[in-house]
Amino acid sequence: MSRRSKSDSRALWIAAVPMFLLALSCLYPFYFALNNALKDNRGYILDRFGLVNDPTFANFITAWSRARFDEYFMNSFTVTVGAVLALLLISSLAGFALAVLRFPYRKLVFVVILASLMIPVQVVLVPFYQTILALDLLNTRTGLILSYTAFFLPFSVYLMTAFYSALPRELVEAARVDGARFIHVWWFIMLPMGRPALLTLAILNTLYCWNDVLISLLVLQDERTLMVGITALRGEYTTNVPLLSAAIVLAAAPIVILYVLFQRKIVAGIATGAVKG
């Protein structure tokens, strides 16, 4: 028995070493950014890897006010909230329809949605840009909200369909017998029961929308979102790394907080999609 527990603990240690290295590789960029954000430019040039001696918040203040990060933050916040709300509403309705309702070509519709998951964004950039131009949505936040909704919808619909398909069909039938129209079934039964999956989707889509550069760069050319603003801080020949680091910390902070608060639900939600799909 004790021999067995000894070999168990050895196996645990063997597994722990690569896991520790993996964690280190993930955490080091955070450390690097935060450490350098607190240095001035001279301090960074003298010792870029060493721990900060004389911490200063000047870079954060500069990034927030002089580099217009307050505006960029509001842009990112508005389009992320708008797109995530649209994604949750549409994917919940579509998932309900695909999982519960019986209509012609239902499976074909689902396959088409799945197929669109396989197409990389880069492949459709030109027709996408032409569509944005044709719809007069260039340089509008609405345009960016609609773009995010369109690009991230297939995965959201797939996840909600998988989640709703796994719920017992009798619940829908009981509600129908109780007097519920289909829209009532969605509102009173499926929407509250889909809360775990919707929460996961909300977090994942917030990550996608908040961190996006490419689509935002195309649609919102006069104004900027936070991530595009960060890339603009890099000069052609020189870069103020402490200022860039402060901007990165500011941009990443909401997402890190969100992830820390809901990390268990994110993992549970991803598992839902993988197993029940």
Binding site: P168, A174, G179, F188, P192, M193
Partner: peptide, 27 residues
């Protein structure tokens, strides 16, 4: 189903898990 004046009891109970007993019965 809701226009037939029937009520049904399912094998799996089919109670709405997010509602209380009273809410289930009064749905």
């Amino acid at each position: 189903p809701y226009d037939r004046g029937i009520a049904m009891v399912f094998q799996s109970y089919a109670l709405y898990p997010h509602m209380t007993v009273a809410e289930n019965m009064g749905f």
